[in-house]
């Protein structure tokens, strides 16, 4: 079986966090769905809360500290991404957006992405499609059709919970189809390895 990397970004703030809970369920479902398609996947989970200070420093200084760099590389180099955020004030959380803001502009171009969101009430669920989806369209990511929203009540009532489980399975299947159907991500191109000769730059000017 071939091995791919699956980056999982969770922007939950509390411990334990329902955002992380949803991220873990999406991850497990994706690992299972990919195994069924003959693809082994290694999930790498990023808890944004752990990097809150480094992310703020990055905004101020314009560069990632050494401690943050591997996290950015993990996300940029992954074959697929599961991104889950709490909904605050009708949109993704500020911490989540800060992380997206410090990613290289091309970091997620073409990357298959599964979006998830959590909130206290189901009244927030359209934020997934009105806020998250356009953000990832801007990043040129390939977002699977099913986004998974979990409100507080989804973790309780038995009928609702089954419904959440169904959505998770369907979304994970869509992500697995995308990942299994394409070659593994190559390493990001190194601008220093294959320079544009100066004569070419001069002609282009």
């Amino acid at each position: 079986m071939e091995t791919r990397t699956l980056a999982v970004v969770s922007a939950g703030l509390s411990v334990p966090s329902s955002t992380r809970l949803l991220a873990d369920r999406l991850t497990d479902a994706t690992v299972t769905a990919l195994a069924e398609r003959g693809v082994e996947v290694r999930p790498e989970v990023v808890e944004l809360r752990d990097h809150a200070r480094d992310l703020a420093d990055h905004l101020v200084t314009g560069f990632p500290k050494a401690a943050l760099r591997p996290t950015l590389d993990t996300v940029a180099g992954a074959d697929a991404l599961i991104a889950v955020t709490p909904i605050f004030s009708a949109s993704y959380s500020g911490l989540f957006k800060t992380f997206v803001d410090v990613l290289d502009r091309e970091a997620l171009a073409g990357t298959p992405v599964l979006l998830g969101a959590t909130a206290g009430s189901a009244r927030h669920q359209l934020a997934l499609d009105h806020a998250l989806r356009p953000l990832f369209a801007y990043l040129h990511a390939t977002v699977v059709p099913t986004g998974v929203f979990a409100a507080a009540e989804d973790w309780g009532a038995s009928g609702a919970s089954r419904e959440l489980g169904d959505r998770i399975t369907r979304a994970a299947g869509e992500l697995a189809d995308l990942v299994a159907g394409r070659p593994a991500t190559g390493r990001a191109t190194d601008p220093f390895a294959d320079p544009t000769p100066f004569e070419t730059l001069l002609r282009g000017a």
Binding site: A56, D57, L59, V60, T61, F63, K65, A66
Partner: peptide, 13 residues
Amino acid sequence: YGHGPSLEDFARE
């Protein structure tokens, strides 16, 4: 760089 990293962090990075 003010109001971001500490002097010690910035001197290291």
